[in-house]
Amino acid sequence: MHRTHTRPPGVGAGLNVTPLIDMVFILLIFFAVNSSFVKETGVEVDRPTAQSAERQDQAGILIAVTKDGEVWIEQQRIDIRAVRGHVERLHAESPEASALIMADKHAETGIVMQVLDQARLAGIDQVAVAATEEL
């Protein structure tokens, strides 16, 4: 006697998508971990132009100085006297990081120099001032 095994219609005929979902989540985690996020200072500044401006890799510590003399780090307005403490903390988190000062072209030179000095006193060897390249 020969038996034939037949399935009722609709039973077991589906596609198993569990491995596909697992793979999508693994790829999502991979890209999230390996992506670089754009850091912002939290304030918009109008940078000066310079003929000698060079493109620089993303700096680890961004400091903004507005035309009104406000200093911003990590989207927070800070007092000029607190720059060194903030930069020391950020430098301790990533010792190889450089600093980039994004000063408005109408910012007072004295305040920009104070910020530059405080960043260097905090232990940052490479401190640059951002400029837009002249065309």
Rank of each mutant, 00 (worst) to 15 (best):
S52K: 02
V38M: 11
S98V: 07
M23K: 14
I78Q: 00
G69H: 15
P19N: 01
H106P: 01
M113V: 15
F25K: 13
T109W: 07
H86Q: 12
T4N: 12
P48H: 09
T41A: 12
T6E: 15
V71G: 06
V45A: 08
A50K: 02
N16G: 00
M23G: 11
A130N: 02
Q118K: 06
R47L: 15
V83Q: 04
T4W: 06
A128G: 11
A119Y: 00
S35A: 09
E134F: 03
T132I: 07
K67Y: 14
A50W: 00
G10C: 05
V112M: 06
L15M: 11
L27Y: 08
A97V: 05
M1P: 07
G110R: 11
M1R: 07
G123V: 00
T41V: 15
D46T: 09
H2E: 13
D79A: 15
V65H: 06
T66G: 12
P8Q: 15
D46N: 11
G110A: 08
A99G: 04
I63S: 04
A128D: 06
E93T: 09
D68G: 15
V127M: 02
S36I: 06
R3H: 14
E54D: 05
L116C: 03
I26F: 14
G60P: 02
V43N: 03
D104R: 10
V83M: 03
T66V: 12
V17Q: 10
H5F: 14
D57V: 05
L100S: 13
D117N: 10
T4D: 08
I26Q: 13
E40P: 09
A50I: 00
N16H: 02
K39M: 12
V65M: 08
N34S: 08
E96G: 11
D68L: 15
E54K: 10
F30N: 03
I111L: 10
A122P: 00
N16W: 04
Q58E: 10
A122N: 02
A59D: 04
N34A: 07
I29K: 08
Q75D: 14
D79Y: 09
A97H: 09
D79G: 04
H91I: 07
G12E: 09
R89N: 10
H91Q: 12
V83Y: 02
M102P: 01
A119T: 03
Q56L: 13
E54T: 05
N34K: 06
E88H: 00
I63C: 04
I111N: 06
W72A: 07
G10P: 02
G123E: 01
